[in-house]
Nucleic acid binder design. Structure first.
Lengths: 205, 205
DNA sequence: ACATTATTGCACATCAGTGTGCAATAATGT
DNA sequence: ACATTATTGCACACTGATGTGCAATAATGT
């Protein structure tokens, strides 16, 4: 019974706690996205705290990476599931997906950066469901003849959405402009004719 | 004059020397391509020599990376320059380029892997001329209306040939099959209609 | 056989990053 | 004011990778 009080107290401390924790996570996404080999010290410095504090929230570098990846995957998966819930045509779903993915793409390029090197396996595992859902969507598009068959759905989906991340990455100027461009390019990759691609993108803001 | 003899002797030793050096370079491409964070020890082990021997040929890890990158860039640049020499249409040149690039793509995915993290700047510098030539080629294609304008030539070229590397990477099965698929996909990215893309790829083996 | 050179094996110094412990201090809620 | 908790500042041990030095050894060309 006394324990309940303890628990309440513990959850009461959580304001400032979650605050710094969240800031560390945010800045870690940024730092590790730019340099996957950045250490705990770099993250701490960028977050404006001392290295020791980071270890207070994440006992291990692995834990930080894990939490980081988990959050990124969760957000992407949420977008994908939400968009994929309807029974619209694969084309339409894809356009919608890219449109909502775009704001996250540049931020979460850390996912692409971390897929190689040391934590690749783990990230691949976390990313598994997303990859599968995406592959299924592309497969569905291929079955209904709206997407091309020049590559198997599994790899085609990878290339198509990797391209979106790549475009977001090489994007130093107009954000709004490139959002359209990214969507159109990904549709081209999927084998959608340019005219049709433009029509799809423009009729769904 | 005696020095000449020395020089001759020094170049006479070069059989076995260049042999191990080349093997180390070859295996380093492989190892670092799979894991960019691999150390000198890993490379040595994979090459079947002792760590000390690697340091005998490459005084520093940086030197190894540099030589590695230089070789890769040289090969890609050679292909590109050779193909780009003629005054054929941009489409045709591109298809030719991809066809000759393909055998190198999987091997030199190390280039994409190393662009982030620690040596990114240096690699970017070495890759600069290639990137520029490629951008110019795509620009030329855009000027003659055979390539799309959904993205600026500079980033479009990056996306298009990065996709080729990505396809080569996700390629666990048919090599010959994917060579065509890679070429077609890259053309789609460049805004070439699918029918035209297939025609281009098929009429130029 | 001889001389030259590449390779090996081992020891060693160095360095950067990780992770921990603990007391002092600042911020917070009540 | 008080108690609780997060943060800080330092100390330290530990690990893994880098790079060097040197003598022993194997391989090579002449």
């Amino acid at each position: 019974m006394c324990n309940n009080v303890m628990v309440q107290i513990e959850s009461a401390r959580s304001r400032s706690l979650n605050d710094t924790r969240k800031r560390i996570l945010d800045v870690a996404v940024e730092v590790l996205g730019q340099n996957p080999d950045a250490g705990m010290g770099d993250v701490a410095a960028a977050a404006g705290v001392v290295r020791r504090t980071v270890y207070g929230h994440f006992p291990t570098r692995s834990d930080l990476i894990r939490s980081l990846t988990q959050q990124a995957v969760n957000e992407v998966a949420a977008v994908l599931d939400e968009v994929n819930a309807s029974d619209r045509a694969a084309e339409t779903v894809w356009v919608d997906f890219i449109a909502r993915l775009w704001p996250l793409a540049h931020r979460y390029r850390v996912l692409l950066a971390l897929r190689r090197g040391e934590y690749g396996e783990e990230i691949h595992a976390l990313l598994g469901p997303v990859d599968k859902t995406l592959a299924d969507l592309v497969q569905k598009g291929q079955d209904s003849e709206v997407f091309g068959r020049h590559l198997p759905a599994q790899v085609l989906s990878q290339i198509a959405y990797a391209a979106v991340f790549a475009i977001a990455d090489n994007n130093l100027s107009g954000e709004n402009l490139s959002a359209r461009a990214a969507a159109i390019t990904s549709l081209l990759i999927l084998g959608v004719p340019e005219a049709r691609a433009r029509a799809l993108v423009d009729t769904q803001p």
